[in-house]
């Protein structure tokens, strides 16, 4: 059984329900096969930005801005889809890094932006297949910003998003670098 710890346990600035977040995180962890892990969630409720990061891989500690869990239609309230998606995206990166195919991936804090976005595209695409991620157009816009507004970039995006094969870090890196090489 996944054990989720949440910090803080209650909120003053936003109307989030800690138990609801724990349930969503637990559900996502089960779906992704991390059912036997301990996961700690650190939420900065003072921030309405949408930043999120993996603070520790072992044990798993995820740190997010309250904004990353927020309902964009109703500021200060929990957005369930957004919460699940944010957690799923971070957990997926952890799963990737645990596989030998990602052994060469640079550490998070030195990972350059285009590579991070390419990896996120691959991640969001896979989550989309299992119903945990939406907003394909939003991801495409992010990808275009880092890889160019071009047919080549759109083709690369589609490949990563649909990920017909299990990709390794070297594939993601090559796709991103090749795509940027076409930029003038």
């Amino acid at each position: 059984m996944t054990e989720i710890q949440i910090e803080p346990n209650s909120f003053e600035m936003v109307f989030f329900d800690a138990e609801k977040i724990v349930n969503l995180a637990s559900e996502v962890a089960q779906i992704l096969g991390l059912g036997n892990e301990q996961i700690k969630l650190r939420i900065d409720e003072t921030s309405s930005m949408g930043r999120s990061k993996i603070e520790s891989y072992e044990p798993i500690i995820l740190a997010v801005d309250g904004g990353a869990f927020e309902n964009t239609q109703r500021p200060r309230y929990l957005g369930e889809t957004r919460t699940s998606e944010t957690i799923a995206r971070l957990l997926m990166r952890i799963i990737d890094r645990r596989s030998p195919e990602f052994a060469n991936a640079p550490e998070d804090d030195v990972l350059d932006l285009p590579l991070r976005v390419a990896w996120d595209t691959y991640t969001a695409g896979r989550l989309n297949h299992i119903g945990l991620s939406t907003q394909m157009k939003r991801r495409q816009y992010q990808f275009r910003n880092r890889h160019g507004f071009s047919d080549a970039a759109d083709k690369a995006f589609t490949y990563l998003w649909e990920s017909p094969n299990k990709l390794a870090w070297a594939d993601i890196e090559r796709i991103s670098v090749d795509c940027r090489a076409t930029l003038v």
């Binding site: 930005m49 500021p75 816009y141 910003n145």
Partner: peptide, 25 residues
């Protein structure tokens, strides 16, 4: 957390450019 317009918040911000990690969003 501070009133906002178009994604800006009560935090210290910077000029909106694509170079920011969350610029496109």
């Amino acid at each position: 957390r501070g009133a906002r317009v178009g994604g800006s918040t009560g935090e210290k911000l910077s000029k909106l450019t694509p170079n920011l990690p969350n610029g496109p969003d």
